[in-house]
Amino acid sequence: MITKQELGVLGDLAQLSLDPESRDSTLRAINEVLELVAIMNTAECEGVKPLAHPLEAEQLLRSDKVTEVNQVAKFSQAAPLFKEGLYLVPKVIE
């Protein structure tokens, strides 16, 4: 079970804000999922190696060749704010 405060932390991690009206319902919904998931605790997994990929195959490597061409004109059409070749965001102070 997570608390309202933890929900706030998760929101920061995931860059999501929740308006006050939906906060309670979201918290309830997340906790329902966690409850559903809790049945895992009854499983015995001692010494079992986690499985990340269903097929357990190995990575094929790509040869070091330049295969891409400049498509900035096409790609930038999808950008909300694009000027002088750059994607713009509100000024960031490091």
């Binding site: 499983a43 997994c45 079992v48 190696k49 986690p50 499985l51 990340a52 269903p54």
Partner: peptide, 10 residues
């Protein structure tokens, strides 16, 4: 834990 169960399910 979920990934361990995934192996057992497999």
């Amino acid at each position: 834990k979920a990934q361990q169960l995934r192996r057992l399910i497999k």
